[in-house]
Amino acid sequence: MSDDTTRLFIGLVGVLLTASVIAGVLSWRSPKPLPPTLDNLNARIKAWWIMVAGISFAFLFGTGGVILLFAFVSFAALREYVTLTNTRHADRWTLLGMFLIVNPVQYYLIWIDWYGLYSIFIPVYCFLAMPALTAMRGDTSRFLERVSEQQWGIMLSVYCISHVPALVTLPIPGNEGRGLLLIAFLIATVQGSDVLQYVFGKLFGRHKVAPSISPSKTWEGLIGGIASASLMGAGLYWLTPFSPIEAGVLAVLSCVMGFFGGLVASAIKRDRGVKDWGHMIEGHGGMLDRADSLVFAAPVFFHIVRYAWT
């Protein structure tokens, strides 16, 4: 592992320790039982610790570890997504195929670095094969709805998320052996933007962006969060093959995409009448609640970097 990896790791642990200490002091001084905001903050900090631990552990095993980690993230995300959709008995084989074939194959294609196939495997082949399989079973009740939900689920949970580990395979001249740091850059920027939007929203939030979708997304939070996270991204340029300005521009783009990801995820949850995607981390939301922004940011980030740097 390079010096940069060590620096990044120490930096992350430092940030989390600071956050934990602040939240601990706030919780200690606050009246009991804790107000929901503080409860939520504690839960988020705990989730970040778990996330950092999980990602660091996967990094120890290199590319294979990161691919396996994100294959698991996709599995968990897909499971949460499918739980909220309409499924009928006739969908069994399609659904099983999504979990047992599509997800492993997509990540295997990334492992063997077959760009030509992993970028069209789901949007072309699965796009056609899944409704064909469902149609073969003959149940036409809400057919369009079921098929569309499956397509969306596999695109969001597997295809989009798989572009995070795919970053390792990009042959960027001068960046050999530093692919994992590019992943760290993307995750830190996008997750940092989530956190900072939340903080700015709590501190200064007045005007809601989309009141009918999410009461917690405000213009103040959005602008403050994205601006500060993009500055942070520019400051993390040393992780990447980019100049500080390039890193900042890519960070803005990723943060904006991340915001849209969160917004779309909220709209789906609102449609289904649920607050959280699941209960992965002690009843405080599921995988998609933390990964929704990455879902939208990863493929766009991937393709821009691939187009401009390789």
Partner: peptide
């Protein structure tokens, strides 16, 4: 909750879905 969707009557392989 949901177990009948995971493993309905006559099915051998369970579909991964969240249960409570």
């Amino acid at each position: 909750e949901n177990m009948s969707r995971v493993l309905p009557k006559g099915a051998l392989l369970p579909i991964p879905l969240l249960c409570r």
